[in-house]
């Protein structure tokens, strides 16, 4: 068996990776493109939902389910697919790749859809609209049973079933770390490119936004697409890591508000800041959960609500006392050139 410490670290790294991907994507939208995506949960849930549906469909083409239904006979079917994956690892890689691509495409389309209001509405109306978008997907996910089992949720096949039991947990964690590293490189490259710098230069300027030329609009659309796809990857990885999707869990606190707290505390429009902010909060939350049991029963209420108090409180304090985060956004090179 794995030691407690290894499990703790592996879990920490996995959750960190998921949030890093989501936060990088949010930072693209909010930090660089200036789009306050208060419906971040939309892309994340989309990725998770695709992961909750597509593998069943795809394996249905490979194996004979013998009348078993993904939702109704969920546990039994998952076990059968897992057994099959253990013998045929190559199918897992293929199915996972297809699922990933589909999730990214749908995430990208949703990102593109959010570009429509993002180009037309001013900040506050945009924020309300995007928040509404996020709520919609949650309501559909929670109520449309064929999708991901409604309020009960579904278990999904473990794509790493071919890895021996004792290594599987660590392997899953490593896969996630790999994806996060890749995402970090990709996003850094993008934000350092001339296009990334251009984005930042028009971000805060309402006047420029109104008169954005066609090229600017196109760039904004592309960024939102990329961010949507990336957000979906985060959700998909999370779902595959916990081997299940419960629509109820895709709420505003965990997948919209928390990412905002992380990137603002870390420092907007700054990928290193995102790295630091994400790490800080994942560690703190993990520790809180770890020591939760000690406190439980001593308070006349559920301990989870302290989480709400802390996150809400921290965010307000940061906005007041440290609005630029731990690692503030660096001045732009282009401006320095102008002055020099």
């Amino acid at each position: 068996m794995l030691s407690h410490e290894i499990i703790f670290v592996a879990d920490l790294l996995a959750i960190f990776s998921v949030y890093l991907i989501i936060n990088l994507s949010l930072n693209l939208e909010f930090g660089y493109a200036g789009v306050p995506n208060f419906g971040k949960v939309l892309a994340v849930a989309t990725g998770a939902f695709v992961m909750g549906v597509l593998p069943f469909t795809l394996y249905g083409m490979i194996i004979d389910y013998g009348g078993l239904e993904p939702i109704d006979d969920n546990i039994q079917l998952v076990r059968e697919i897992n057994d099959y994956i253990a013998l045929h690892p190559e199918t897992a890689v293929g199915v996972f790749a297809i699922t990933l691509i589909v999730a990214m495409v749908i995430g990208g389309i949703l990102g593109l859809a959010s570009a429509y209001p993002a180009i037309r509405l001013r900040g506050d109306y945009l924020a309300m609209t995007l928040l509404g978008f996020g709520e919609m997907i949650r309501i559909i996910g929670m109520n449309y049973t064929p999708l991901v089992g409604g309020t009960l949720g579904v278990s999904i096949p473990d794509m790493l079933s071919f890895v021996p039991n004792e290594y599987r947990f660590v392997a899953a964690s490593l896969v996630l770390v790999g994806f996060a590293g890749l995402a970090y490189l990709l996003v850094s490259r993008f934000t350092k490119s001339p296009v990334g710098r251009l984005l930042r230069s028009v971000r805060d300027d309402e006047v420029t936004l109104q008169t954005l030329g066609r090229d600017h609009k196109k760039i904004k659309m592309k960024v939102l697409m990329l961010a949507g796809a990336l957000g979906a990857v985060g959700g998909l990885l999370y779902a595959s890591y916990v081997e299940g999707v419960v629509a109820f869990g895709y709420n505003r606190l965990n997948w919209t508000f928390l990412p905002f707290v992380m990137i603002i505390v870390g420092g907007l429009a700054n990928n290193k800041g995102v790295l630091v902010g994400t790490f800080l909060f994942v560690v703190i939350r993990k520790l809180v959960i770890y020591y939760n049991d000690a406190l439980d029963g001593m308070l006349p209420f559920d301990i989870i609500w302290l989480d709400y108090l802390a996150l809400g409180g921290v965010m307000i304090l940061v906005l007041i006392f440290r609005p630029h985060g731990i690692i503030p956004e660096r001045p732009q090179k282009t401006r320095q050139l102008e002055k020099g």
Partner: peptide, 24 residues
């Protein structure tokens, strides 16, 4: 002179805070 978006984030944060308070 915080931006309107910062103000929105502050109200969202207060909402989260209050949800904690109300559930307690």
């Amino acid at each position: 002179k915080s931006s309107v978006i910062s103000l929105i984030i502050a109200t969202l944060a207060f909402d989260i805070f209050m949800i904690g308070v109300l559930n307690i």
